[in-house]
Each structure stands twice: as C-alpha cells, then as structure tokens.
Design a protein around this nucleic acid. Structure first.
Lengths: 189, 189
DNA sequence: CCAATCATTTGATCTATGTCACAAAATCAT
DNA sequence: ATGATTTTGTGACATAGATCAAATGATTGG
C-alpha cells in the first residue's frame, strides 16, 4: 500500500462529506510513518502535538514506577496511540514503543485545531472519532476494573486476543499487575 | 436555584454561540430532576437514552458480581452519570444510585442526535464536552491502573478527596478491590 | 429518644500471590 | 549455524491481604 492509498482509505472510513477544499486541506495534516520494531513513538513527560493511528503493527504503553516498566495498554491495527491530554499541551504520562515493524498514520493536532476554526464542518468528522474513542475508554475502564488476576487475564484475552500472540508474557504480567511467575502458572492451568 | 437558572447556567458554561433558534430548541431536551438519596438513576442491563449531569449531590456506580456489588466509580457535582454506550442503544453495565439527595440535569440523547442532523452547529458545543469527558476517562484509567491497595487509595484521595468525606468505607473498599478490613487498617496508618 | 440497623474497627488464622533462585526454552546477532 | 541473550517455567519459602468472628461506634426511622 502506498502512502496516499493509506490516507485516502482513512478519509473514506471517516466519511468526509465536506467540500473539496476541506478535503485537500485535511490531507496535508496527515502523514504516513514507517517505523521499525522498538522505535519509540512517544516518550514519558514529552509534549507532543501528534495523534497516531496504527495502520499495521503493534505498540506497548508503559510508565516507569520505582525503576520498573508498568504497562498500561497494548495497541494494534485500527487503534490510536497517544492520549488526548497531549493535544492540549500536557506532557505524556506514558512511553509508547513499537512491538513490531509498523505503519502509523500521524495527525498534526495543532494544525487540525487551527483548521477547525476555519472550517467548522471538520468537527462533524472528528466528533465520531472522539465519541468512539471515549466508548473504547469506557470499555477498557470497565474491564480493567476486574480484580482477580485470572479474571483480568481472561477479559484481556476475550477483549484483545491478539495480545497473547503478539505481546511477551512479561509485559502482559506487568499490565495485569501480577508477577510473571504467577501469570506463567495461571497459563499452565 | 430554579430549574431555568440551572439550565441557563449550563448553557452559558458550554458557551453556545449558535443562533436563537438552536438555543431554544436545545433547552427543550434538558430537564432538571430532583431526587432523594438512594434513588436509582440507571439500572444494570437497562437501555436508556439519557445522560445526567450532577448539579448537586453524589452517586455511586456498581455492578453485581457473584451477588456482590462491585463499585466502579463515585460521581459528584459537575460530573456525568451514565456511559456513552447507553446513547447508542446498548444496555448499561452498571447500576447508578444516588448517595445523597441530588439535583440532576438530564439530556435526552435521542433528541439531541436528531437535533444534530437539523442543526449541525450543535456539534460545536457537544464536541468539547465529549473531548473533556474522554480526557477525564484517560485520567481515571491511568490512576485506576496503579496496583497496590495503598497507592490506589492515595490516588483516589488525591484525585477525588471528597470520596473520603462522602462515601461509606465499604463502597470505597469495593472500588479499590480490597476488603473493608484491610482498608480500615490502611487508614489506621 | 431509643431500638434497630448499618458501618467501622480489631484480633486470629489462612491462602493466594510475591520473591528468590535456577533451569529450560526461545529468540537474536554474528 | 551457534553461542549469547532474553523470555518463560518450576520449586521452596515468605508475606500482604483475605476471611471469619466478634465488639464497638454511628445513623436512621418510628
């Protein structure tokens, strides 16, 4: 897939009904990035103005706590990396690192906000994206809240089965808040 | 405060810049509700079309798990009750019950969605609300993720100090995923 | 204002899960 | 390929926090 294929696929998917002018302006704030495994997309405490959609690949998000990496989420195709707070000039609480060679679609949020002032109709196709993202967060919050290690593990598998296939056990254990030994034993049934 | 004071305060706070027509149409989908303590606002598995903003009072959200109430959140003045999934016709995962006599502002989301089709400019003042809500969820998700009982307790106190004053210990323990005995001991330092 | 209910505390065990230590297996780089 | 490094699995032991029990303290409704 070429870069422009990726961009036009995305624009099709959000159902842009705006005029040609908006359409072409909007393309300019999108950029396709191809990064190798282990590339760091966002650093903890860093202020960034970009949102990234994973077109292909996977990423892990974590923060350092007493020198240890505590994982907060794993992202795959079709999911956004980076949090909304970044787009309001607040520093990132997490580091995001790619787990595989990946293709990302970056959104220059600064420029999108400026565009929104000029073409208010852009809101109409940003809105569903934010709305869906918020529902996605509600889901995560609900499943994250389950307490026993086994329940959280099962929920993660049910909700994101690819985690098991694509993420090292150590990271999953850190995400679930249990030791890797315990996770290893849970899996051994 | 009269009902119309409450409504106009809200409309002022979201900074409606639309024309008079939209303004008056929008008022019709808002309704002020005054409920006593223990009133159930939303039942688990129920499909509802309303969002509620707490003007005054407090609420707890929980779901039943093995016959026990597992708390997922406590809400106070200025916060929304009910999740976005409800507005898309999905059943609620939680029951929401008032902890105090409360004043709520209800939003008929069905009718708001219809209004959005007729007056697309409404999106411009729904959008910041959803955006803020999503950021609020990101915050919750981040703090909820901390694992040790003590850390979660401290984060809750830092993030929502009123919880300690206005919510029974038993509910807080259920929220933190620890027994009330342990929470009692943590507090005793 | 008092009985009755409900919420919190404290003590004595018990258990799931953490920690440490090392072995086995998988993955990576030259 | 093959040795090196990183990831996963298993055993022995320690411990935070669960559970059970029962006393004390706070709220509520008649």
């Amino acid at each position: 897939m070429t870069d422009s294929d990726i961009i036009s696929n995305f624009l099709k998917s959000v159902d842009v009904k705006s005029n040609e002018k908006v359409f072409s302006e909007f393309q300019l704030v999108l950029k396709v990035l191809r990064y190798p495994k282990k590339q760091i997309v966002l650093k903890e405490n860093q202020i960034g103005q970009f949102a990234y959609l994973i077109i292909e690949g996977a990423a892990r998000s974590y923060y350092l706590h007493n020198g240890l990496e505590v994982h907060t989420w794993f992202s795959f195709e079709g999911e956004f990396i980076g949090s909304l707070r970044n787009h309001d000039g607040l520093p990132s609480r997490e580091t995001v690192e790619l787990l595989e060679d990946s293709i990302l679609l970056s959104f220059d949020m600064m420029r999108i906000k400026e565009l929104m002032k000029i073409f208010p109709e852009i809101t109409n196709f940003i809105y569903p994206v934010i709305n869906e993202y918020a529902q996605f967060l509600e889901d995560r919050l609900f499943y994250t809240h389950l307490k026993s290690a086994k329940e959280k593990y099962d929920a993660l598998i049910a909700y994101q089965p690819q985690v098991l296939r694509r993420v090292p056990l150590t990271f999953i254990a850190s995400y679930l808040g249990i030791s890797r030994e315990t996770l290893s034993r849970i899996r051994a049934k």
